[in-house]
Design a protein around this nucleic acid. Structure first.
Lengths: 248, 248
DNA sequence: CCTTAAAATGAACATTGTTCAAAAATAAAA
DNA sequence: TTTTATTTTTGAACAATGTTCATTTTAAGG
């Protein structure tokens, strides 16, 4: 029997990464599994409303953090800035997020959801090679349009540190995104392309190529390379890759 | 005529990125250009010694910083840590480096020197395609063996911020490294390879491919991709690239 | 020895992430 | 309604960080 009033236990559960303290109220089945009788068997509408309010505030904080990150950079954004932006105190932020890393990880996940949504149009592309090309284009476009989110997703180590703290915590976001790429590459192989190539190494190579261009671009490393429009070197580099892919 | 005793001017010059205050003493020609008579026309050996001592201490601080960065991470290393490591006070560190960014930029440059040294063996490789392949191998090896230095050189924005502060400050380290790659690619083109490809986009593509693999590996993003030895996916990815290059 | 400039110091400051006892707000019970 | 219990919010306090600068220490030159 879990002592619900024990602050230490609550803290532990909260730090478990499942979510903030509200897990006890949000995840009804979990409560029942623990055979904890609900104190009041009334309408449940009140606690439902509270759950929604909690989630709304969590999201409010998250979106404020995101706006500030984009506006002034991740490092330059303080918890106090975020608290001010949502008109709550610092302490409140720490009720909804264990620490700054927790916020970074949550936004990192949000980024993968958005990239995944953008990938959905790929279902409409029948030809696997064309689908692969389009996938790269979407990826690059996302990375250049959302450099901060991209950093969170593929460069910064903070969101990965968050995973370290929890048991059995895999990088599922990355895994499933890479799976989407692998599936498309496999389709290309099935269609007769990429002869004598292995699925994983080839997919990783393609991912690296596209990621590398975005990474160099977003970290200002392609500046010294091309004097003209710095975005164009990425386009041209990707065009060079497509030209090579044509014959594979 | 520059008022040498004016602390503000000294500060300005020092912040100019040319080096610490010692520039006035280190760069003899500069002093002469300003037609500032040397105070003492004696042996010059004493001031020479002081110059060497200053440079030695600067390097002592730099290497201590590097050791700490490697040992406990860049963010986790404080100026106090560095000062303790060299048995000097915090203030002394700030005499030799404008701020932490200055240290990061100095180490970033050091990294390029080292990578450049490792590239020197490439002069011995006659075949341009083999030289290109070897170049990639050296690059990858350097990146995986010195992940912190690599981050400084190609990912972190701090060393680039340092350049922003100064006029006419290009990223020469990156430029010349990319030039080395371009030269080799041009040699390959001259030898009949990479038909119908443009030098810059193709070179950028190759750089991105190799950088992307190192970046994903060093930022732990290749973990969820390959369950076995995480280094091996980089090797296999590079092998896939080499296989493609064979036919170009 | 004395003078003077360079080098080194470390206390002090502003800002950061984070905590936690207390207060305020809200819901339940009487 | 009043009282009690619980949840939610607060913001002062803490430790750690990068950075500054008036002061002290060191040492060279006369």
């Amino acid at each position: 029997m879990l002592p619900l009033t024990d602050a230490t236990v609550l803290q532990d559960v909260r730090c478990d990464g499942v979510g903030p303290i509200g897990i006890f109220y949000r995840n009804q089945t979990f409560i029942e599994q623990c055979s904890l009788p609900l104190r009041h068997h009334t309408t449940m509408s009140i606690s439902d409303r509270k759950i929604k309010e909690k989630e709304a505030l969590r999201d409010l904080i998250l979106q404020a953090a995101r706006r500030l990150f984009v506006a002034k950079g991740i490092e330059q954004t303080t918890i106090r800035n975020i608290a001010d932006a949502v008109d709550y105190s610092v302490g409140t932020v720490y009720v909804y997020f264990k620490d700054k890393t927790d916020i970074l990880h949550a936004l990192h996940s949000e980024g993968f959801t958005e990239l995944g949504n953008q990938f959905k149009v790929l279902f409409a592309v029948a030809d696997p090679m064309e689908r692969l090309r389009a996938m790269g284009r979407i990826y690059i476009h996302f990375a250049l349009e959302n450099p901060d989110m991209y950093d969170l997703m593929f460069t910064l180590k903070a969101p990965m540190d968050y995973l370290e703290d929890e048991k059995n915590a895999d990088w599922n976001e990355g895994k499933s995104t890479f799976s989407a790429l692998k599936t498309t590459v496999q389709d290309c192989i099935n269609a007769g392309h990429f002869k004598n190539h292995q699925l994983e190494p080839l997919s990783f190579m393609i991912w690296s190529l596209v990621h590398g261009m975005c990474s160099l671009h977003n970290s200002q490393r392609s500046k010294g390379v091309h004097l003209e429009n710095p975005d164009s070197i990425v386009e041209q580099g990707y065009a060079a890759f497509l030209q090579i892919m044509e014959i594979l």
